[in-house]
């Protein structure tokens, strides 16, 4: 567990690069207080933990062959990124739109605390080299407990970087920060679209 914790700690900054960019603007663009931010962050981290546990189970069950498959890595993550990125941009652009705009659906998603859940899912499924390493490790573990412990260590190490994020909410009350945060969320969406297409194109080229 210690080695995966260290791995999570070392790769946590990369994790923040992929999800902090989404989560930080999201928190700034929110409309509730610090309590809401803490609850959003908890949902986000909880989702990550659940997804990691699911991954740990799958890794242990299927073994490493499926997880090294280029199809899974490129096509599925590519499609997920694109879908999620479109949702983010929708969320960003739709804020100033009329109530009949399709972005209303995303606003509804926001109210139901599903956005942090979506963020948690995508962040957990971002197949970075570190996660692939953990998957490989889990796939080769003898018992499911060992597989869970490996993922728990990784989760704890990489989550440390997200803990100071509620402080961002202190600036949130100002309209300016809300606007900038919303626009930044849209930009993060564009980054994820690019990432998604890169994965898909890479998948097609590499077969």
């Amino acid at each position: 567990m210690l080695d995966t914790f260290i791995l999570g700690l070392s790769s946590g900054s990369t994790c923040l690069l992929t999800c902090g960019m989404v989560f930080f603007p999201y928190l700034m663009a929110g409309s509730a207080g610090t309590r809401k931010i803490i609850s959003d962050l908890s949902f986000f981290l909880m989702t990550r933990l659940i997804v990691y546990f699911l991954l740990a189970t799958l890794a242990w069950y299927f073994g490493k062959t499926i997880f090294t498959s280029a199809i899974f890595r490129n096509y599925i993550s590519g499609i997920l990124y694109i879908l999620f990125a479109v949702m983010l941009i929708w969320y960003s652009v739709g804020r100033n739109r009329k109530p009949d705009c399709p972005a209303k659906i995303v606003t509804t998603v926001n109210n139901k605390k599903l956005v942090p859940v979506f963020l948690g899912v995508v962040n957990s499924l971002g197949f970075c080299p570190a996660l692939l390493l953990i998957l490989t490790k889990s796939a080769t573990q003898g018992t499911i407990t060992q597989s869970y412990l490996a993922f728990l260590g990784f989760f704890a190490g990489s989550s440390l970087y997200f803990l100071p994020l509620p402080l961002a909410g202190r600036f949130r009350k100002k309209k300016v920060f809300e606007t900038v945060g919303t626009l930044a969320t849209g930009l993060a969406g564009i980054i994820f679209i690019i990432k998604g297409f890169t994965n898909l194109i890479g998948g097609i080229i590499n077969g």
């Binding site: 791995l7 070392s10 790769s11 900054s13 080299p129 570190a130």
Partner: peptide, 9 residues
Amino acid sequence: DGLIGERKQ
């Protein structure tokens, strides 16, 4: 060299 501490790669 990373932003804080060292990177693995």
